[in-house]
């Protein structure tokens, strides 16, 4: 038996069929959770953010054009929701003057360590931590590009921007990561 398409399920969900929406949640929960995890930087927030993303997808389903593919639309709602949640988290933090930003819990190497093509676990952790401090819009582009392994055409579609804008966001995000790693004492070279 062939599996019902996302678009068909979304169409049924749009007319109030919660069972169809539940199937969509079941099908995409891992992807959405991983995006949320990369955008939030920790599992606790990722859990809440995943729920929030699916609630937004449910409430915004009426805006979905069933003649188009469901996935890019879902990724757009998900990543936009994560951006809004990131911004509101930043807002809360900036109001709490006594509470500093989460310190990155990674010891910078005493001597500059170059990033080779083979990345060690420590370097992976350093990059992952630095990513949480990249601006939300750039992190959104990096996340969809790296976690979802989207092509730039797919990325542009998911972000709802021209391809050159999507590519530019990824480049700027990578440059931010590079700069922040250098500030932490990592020498970045190929």
């Amino acid at each position: 038996m062939t599996e019902e398409s996302d678009e068909r399920l979304a169409s049924r969900a749009m007319s109030g069929d919660r069972g169809a929406f539940e199937s969509l949640v079941m099908r995409h929960r891992v992807r959405v959770f991983r995006i949320c995890y990369r955008m939030a930087g920790n599992t606790n927030d990722a859990e809440d953010w995943t729920q929030e993303c699916f609630v937004r997808i449910w409430t915004q389903l009426k805006a979905f054009d069933t003649s188009r593919s469901f996935e890019p639309w879902m990724l757009r709602v998900t990543s936009n929701t994560c951006i809004n949640l990131s911004k509101s988290r930043l807002g809360v933090r900036s109001k709490m003057a006594s509470t500093p930003f989460e310190e990155i819990n990674i010891a910078a190497p005493k001597l500059a360590e170059p990033f080779e093509q083979t990345v060690s676990n420590q370097q992976k952790a350093a990059i992952a931590d630095v990513l949480t401090t990249v601006s939300p819009v750039l992190r959104q582009a990096l996340t969809l590009w790296a976690v979802e392994q989207l092509t730039f055409k797919e990325l542009a579609d998911a972000l709802g921007v021209p391809l050159s804008t999507a590519a530019q966001r990824v480049r700027r995000g990578l440059m931010q990561v590079r700069g922040k790693l250098a500030n932490k004492g990592y020498e970045v070279r190929s």
Binding site: R34, R38, Q123, I127, A128, L142, A146, V147, V177
Partner: peptide, 8 residues
Amino acid sequence: PVKDSMGV
């Protein structure tokens, strides 16, 4: 390196 690090 960023691509490798972000895979979860």
